[in-house]
């Protein structure tokens, strides 16, 4: 939920990275963290298991700069991708302003992508959101691996509403900022729409 503070002239928005387990959601945040200037980012928090699997969420506050005199800050979250963490995953969606779905391009993860996308739609609905109305970007990750599904096939299977689609290799940063920029843009344009602009 966007928080507009007229007193401190700040706007905070919440973006959630969703998708199947081991798909690269945390890697997206890690790359953003590693490539952002120190003054523009806060601490990257990872609530993970001993084997570095996300247990509850990762969190990265990002200061993008000033729009019309208001400091614009994005709070990036990931959810745990593993199926059995659904109760925790649902909680992170509370107050979301924009979504990124990080799909795993490997052929054997196709079912996991589809299942996760259904899960996203269902969990959003339980919070009173409709995926069709939420700012949303689809990222096709792991494009450098050998056993991948073609982009067109993957988009055909996962695309829901003409959302922007980006190919990515998150561990090398390919497509990571394009994805973030696209979802941030939608969030801000949505704010404009809601302001009557």
């Amino acid at each position: 939920m966007t928080f507009i503070n007229y007193a401190s002239r700040e706007i905070n928005c919440k973006i959630v990275y969703y998708g199947p387990g081991l798909g690269g959601k945390t890697t997206n945040l890690q790359y953003i963290y590693d490539s952002t200037a120190a003054q523009a980012k806060g601490k990257l928090i990872s609530l993970a298991t001993e084997t570095d699997r996300t247990l509850f969420f990762d969190f990265l506050p990002l200061d993008l700069g000033t729009v019309r005199g208001f400091k614009t800050r994005f709070h990036l979250y990931t959810v745990p991708g593993q199926v059995f963490y659904d109760a925790s995953r649902k909680l992170i969606l509370k107050g979301v302003d924009g979504m990124v779905f990080v799909a795993d391009s490997q052929r054997e993860r196709m079912d996991a992508n589809v299942e996760s996308l259904f899960n996203l739609e269902s969990n959003l609905k339980q919070h009173g959101y409709d995926l069709m109305k939420v700012p949303y970007v689809l990222q096709l990750n792991k494009r450098d691996l050998p056993n991948i599904v073609s982009s067109s096939e993957l988009s055909g299977e996962l695309r829901r509403k003409g959302e922007p689609v980006f190919e990515a290799v998150a561990n090398r940063g390919v497509g990571v900022f394009d994805t973030l920029k696209a979802v941030a843009k939608q969030v801000l344009l949505e704010l404009r729409k809601n302001s009557g602009g």
Partner: peptide, 19 residues
């Protein structure tokens, strides 16, 4: 009454400038 939102007149250029 408009809440005098800073976003009412935001342009795509403003957004691009952020990045």
């Amino acid at each position: 009454i408009s809440l005098d939102s800073p976003f009412a007149e935001i342009t795509e250029e403003d957004i691009d400038a952020l990045f």
